[in-house]
Design a binder for these strands. Sequence first.
DNA 1: CCTACCGATCGGTAGG
DNA 2: CCTACCGATCGGTAGG
Lengths: 195, 195
Amino acid sequence: MARTQAADYRERREAIVEKAAELYAKRGFLGASVADLAAACGSSKSLIYHYYPSKEEILHDVMASHIADLEQAMAEADALKLGPAEKLRAMAHAFMGRYVGAQDRHKVLLNELDHLPAEKRADIVGRQRSLVAAVERLLVELRPELAGQKGRTWPTAMLFFGMINWTHTWYDPRGRVTPDELADMAADLVLKGLG
Amino acid sequence: MARTQAADYRERREAIVEKAAELYAKRGFLGASVADLAAACGSSKSLIYHYYPSKEEILHDVMASHIADLEQAMAEADALKLGPAEKLRAMAHAFMGRYVGAQDRHKVLLNELDHLPAEKRADIVGRQRSLVAAVERLLVELRPELAGQKGRTWPTAMLFFGMINWTHTWYDPRGRVTPDELADMAADLVLKGLG
DNA sequence: CCTACCGATCGGTAGG
DNA sequence: CCTACCGATCGGTAGG
């Protein structure tokens, strides 16, 4: 009996996180109330607070679940037997692939970091930084001279992430360009530019 | 007398917009109250409502003032007697140049669009689109074959804007990389990639 | 241009 | 005496 309850507990938390991602993406963290979330879940506010101690904790789970997904995708790409250029391309594909189907969580992760308490924010920011570090390592493999130019590697990696992350504001996976094509376009720009 | 009052009126509105940009950038539009804004201006809430009919109208002014600045910078770059590649580089410099000193407005423009009423949002979005269109024209000049591939020009332009716009989340102009160096890095990636 | 307020709604918690 | 969960309401604050 304890086992079926525990299973239900996890499912219900996941359902709350899923609806929260949707609402926070659409209206912003402060614009969506716990009452709104409860209504979207077909439950009471008290039920939400049974599963989560605070609104911020729900926000953290939305972000943490998505970043765990990105970390896994990134680790898989990093483990491939490929040169740095093709590994960078694989990472672009990994990101764009996970982004489709998790657009709400992605948007929340990128827009609502400031509304996390300092401690939880530090956790998420630290994990983001190690994703960036993986790209930095590839860039240095590709262009060893980057490491010599003080503080150029990190900005270059952030320009790459800018292309990828900014897609959440404009890209529609139902349009003419597929996520894989877009990943190739971004990788091509970094590797060889337009020409 | 009417003249001095009118002059004062504009100055006070500008002071409100400036403080609003600061608060909305730091805490978000919904996270910063009109009372907070009044306190930051050393005035009362009622005074704010004397100069602006609603909180949304202040948000619109924060965004509209910044986008007007970007439009001017873009027009200046577009008017230069340069080939498309160097014009694209000039636009990157124009954007990064205006971004420094207007970081708060830039962040608000990029993060709080959803909190504008539909009509005002349409105004801002339309003006953003024409900035993108200017970049698209340059890309087609650079690579005429882009125009032949259905729907490739716009995504490429958006990847470029992604690099530029995403800087608001990580770039510190007081660091080792100057805005002009960063603009060159972004332009170089689009034009020729890393190598 | 301020103090004093409003209808409503906020995040979170009470008793049972 | 526990858990899962409810209707009702807490003290404060929002925009106006």
